[in-house]
Design a protein around this nucleic acid. Structure first.
Lengths: 247, 247
DNA sequence: CGTTTCGTTGATAGTACTCAAGTGGTGTGG
DNA sequence: CCACACCACTTGAGTACTATCAACGAAACG
């Protein structure tokens, strides 16, 4: 196992494939950052293609974003969440009506013109490979979301979402896990393809069963993590994917 | 029947960005083909990771495949369809239970070890860029599928599916469009996240309304394409995406 | 020609959506 | 500091949609 940088943090990294040293990827990313404009976005801000804001490649440095669309006569949908490290704009589902990138939690992004980005990729194989893998990871997340929305009941979807968020931003708490949701009730409903009222009922049910206990408006406390995981057929999948992404 | 070499048909490609000549991409793909093993698969065959068959990168040359998963206690789901040109295996949503690549229509694939594939990418910027874009296209398709499953009613989903298939394999017919579905009723239901019985009812309704007229088992005839498109809020999106992918 | 699989259709139950009223927290201005 | 308006959330009753189960008909397969 080649972990030239990991040992400085004392964390062994699961290296899946022979690859150039980790340091090179950091260097490659740094080179990318030099070419990029740093953009700071506040909550609820929208990046739309009609403003020409989606004609670039973005790289999420911090915060949380979502790709949203509004189909005529339908409620808003959040198709995918973007966490730090994600690459946005290579993909661009071009013709989705009212497609926009919605800022869920104040974020900092790198912005590059597409040409610059592709030129960098062409020059740097290490960067190129890293980006390819990153996009692959995001695709995996999208597929998982599809499986959630298409295959699970409302309650299972809600549980899966709590697991996803807990894995990502959870802080081990006294008797379980605590985390800020950042998403409003409506955001969550749009992400899970549920009616907001229905989601509220589901959450109330979870609270009644002691699986969830909410303190603040967007703060969630999960007293028993295993009990929550038992609610979702995708718990193991989510955990494994997060470990792989994070590791 | 499907040629991804547009210039043989004399069609100008809508070039979105400065890029090396099309010929170079063909050359790059040819180089990739030389390194690859050609695999022929028959209908209903499954490629599973437990067989080690998903530890490679595949490139679809012809036929139709689907990524399927079976969640415990749930019906099968088809998460995404793979058409010729698609790259499979870079993505691998790793931990989905019973994930498998299901052959819908007899297919021919290129198979490469991951290392070989990534080495090729590292050596050839043109190929690398092409693959990045291809994966981006597939991601767009997956997102569209999510929007379909999460945001549309059963009838709208069915219509959208017919549009998707018609765009891809449709032959302009006497009074509209005709195409082979290749997917069985159950396959379609699993892809649209609908119950097979419900889908049957929906199809009957469409037939009763004259929007669809089925002749053979898996053959569909759409007498009036515009009428079909009017049934789906995503018709324009599907059309635009297909034009972009194909052009 | 029997067997199997697939597709259709009816009756019923379950789930999620809609609309509407009510609650609680938050922010603003008096 | 309080009153008010506002917003997000909750909850109830009724409706619409989809799933489930079962029976039936038709086409493929040996």
């Amino acid at each position: 196992m080649i972990t030239d940088r990991a040992h400085t943090r004392g964390e062994p990294r699961p290296v899946q494939l022979a690859q150039p040293a980790q340091q090179s990827i950091d260097e490659a990313l740094a080179a990318l950052g030099e070419q990029a404009t740093t953009v700071r976005l506040r909550r609820r801000q929208l990046l739309t293609s009609s403003n020409g804001q989606l004609d670039c490649v973005y790289i999420v440095r911090s915060g949380l974003l979502a790709l949203q669309t509004v189909l005529p006569g339908k409620p808003r949908q959040l198709l995918t969440l973007h966490y730090p490290g994600d690459v946005i704009g290579v993909v661009l589902p071009p013709p989705l009506p009212h497609a926009a990138l919605c800022v869920i939690a104040a974020a900092e992004l790198w912005r590059l013109p597409v040409k610059t980005f592709e030129a960098l990729l062409a020059k740097d194989p290490v960067l190129s490979l890293h980006i390819t893998r990153q996009i692959a990871r995001q695709e995996a997340r999208t597929l998982l979301h599809t499986a959630m929305v298409g295959g699970l009941s409302g309650e299972e979807r809600a549980a899966s979402f709590l697991i996803e968020l807990g894995l990502h931003a959870g802080v081990p708490c006294a008797r379980g896990m605590a985390f800020d949701m950042h998403l409003s009730r409506n955001d969550v409903a749009d992400y899970l393809a549920l009616n907001a009222d229905t989601l509220s009922r589901i959450m109330s049910r979870l609270k009644a069963r002691g699986i969830l206990s909410q303190t603040g408006r967007m703060r969630a406390i999960v007293p028993n993590w295993d009990a929550l995981c038992a609610e979702s057929p995708l718990a193991a999948t989510l955990t494994a994917l997060h470990a792989k992404t994070d590791g």
